[in-house]
């Protein structure tokens, strides 16, 4: 993909929320996304992983225009979404669709499946001629693994997996080039999740659509994505190809996250090899100075408090925002507790 213009480019994106002061809580500005740069190329799947509150969903909402950025740029196809005239923006918005996590909340309960899909064409007249609507609905439903007799039913008559298929069909109705999947499979049961993941891959193969796949599930991201970005407290701490991130993670947070992520193989590994971080993620209202991860990091030194590390390819081969990046020492050479923050 190198050399080609990226489809989506976030450059130094900042999105903040103003918090009203409440009882026992000071007001202030929360920078949920605090300067994020990220690219997605055509036909590519980029994974964005991080824990709740890290800002990954805010990025999703900013990209699709639900939230206005307070700094930086969102470029789509080389054009700055913040500087486009309204009419052109509306046209361009079609190209970026989103599939939300909760298939029970993201479909209007008062609309039939056919109407949910046709709504897209009512909003964008001219996309599909009216006399073709019924045929197109059938085609889309088939495309996502549903049947045409489902068209007249309401969302509550479907299971979670089927609803997520409806959401995908609805997103596809405007023929997007990028679909942002915000925890799109997280609410589904294992066997159903695999069906949806396979569907997403199949759609990409057939339609060439790109995905920004936002998830907390590292196993799923590893399965689906070409490139991965890891977020912590509003910033991207490490980006790289899937192999780089999973085989040679260099940021301590990535390492901890990978170690903590449960996998089918965990019964084989010795639990003393786990990295278990202490404490909780600090409040984004008052992030730590310097490196935001330093309060939970076992490699932190004075420099981490004073100076914020910029993402750079130190000698890691891929961008890492850490002053002291490095491979994990192989477990056999470490004493059980050295460098591990375990809680006793």
């Amino acid at each position: 993909m190198a050399g080609t213009e990226p489809l989506l480019e976030l450059s130094d994106l900042v999105t903040s929320y103003r918090l009203r002061p409440g009882i026992g809580r000071p007001g202030g500005e929360v920078r949920a996304v605090a300067g994020v740069s990220l690219t997605v190329h055509a036909g590519e799947t980029v994974g964005l992983v991080g824990e709740s509150g890290c800002g990954k969903s805010t990025i999703a909402r900013t990209i699709v225009g639900l939230v206005r950025p307070s700094g930086g740029k969102v470029l789509f196809d080389g054009r700055d979404l913040g500087a486009l005239p309204a009419k052109e923006l509306r046209r361009l918005r079609r190209d970026i669709q989103i599939v939300f996590q909760d298939p029970y909340a993201s479909l209007n309960p008062r609309m039939t499946v056919a109407n949910l899909i046709k709504e897209a064409w009512r909003i964008h007249p001219g996309l599909v001629p009216r006399e073709r609507w019924d045929d197109e609905v059938d085609a889309l439903l088939e495309r996502v693994g549903l049947r045409s007799e489902h068209a007249g039913r309401y969302p509550h008559q479907f299971s979670g997996g089927q609803r997520q298929r409806i959401s995908i069909a609805r997103a596809l109705a405007v023929r997007p080039r990028l679909i942002v999947c915000d925890e799109a499979v997280s609410a589904l049961d294992v066997s159903v999740r695999a069906q949806i993941l396979n569907l997403l891959q199949e759609l990409q193969r057939d339609l060439g659509v790109s995905y920004l796949f936002i998830s907390h599930d590292l196993g799923v991201v590893r399965h689906l994505c070409d490139r991965v970005a890891v977020m912590y407290l509003g910033k991207i701490v490490e980006t790289g190809s899937k192999e780089e991130i999973y085989r040679s993670p260099a940021h301590p947070y990535t390492q901890a996250l990978l170690s903590a992520a449960p996998s089918l193989d965990d019964w084989r590994t010795d639990e003393s090899d786990e990295i278990v971080l202490t404490g909780d993620v600090p409040s984004p209202l008052s992030p730590p100075t310097g490196c935001r991860f330093r309060t939970r990091c076992w490699r932190a030194q004075d420099r981490c408090r004073d100076e914020e590390p910029a993402p750079a390819e130190r000698d890691t081969g891929h961008p890492v925002a850490c002053h002291f990046p490095g491979a994990l020492p192989p477990p056999t050479t470490t004493a059980p507790d050295s460098g591990r923050l375990t809680k006793e």
């Binding site: 299971s159 997996g161 069906q195 993941l197 089918l264």
Partner: peptide, 24 residues
């Protein structure tokens, strides 16, 4: 067996998932 194959296999990355068809 179906459940195991529906979850990404950490030792065989990118292998297609074998979803269990239908639902419970």
């Amino acid at each position: 067996l179906g459940l195991m194959r529906a979850v990404p296999d950490p030792r065989d990355i990118g292998a297609p998932l074998e979803a269990i068809e239908g639902r419970p």
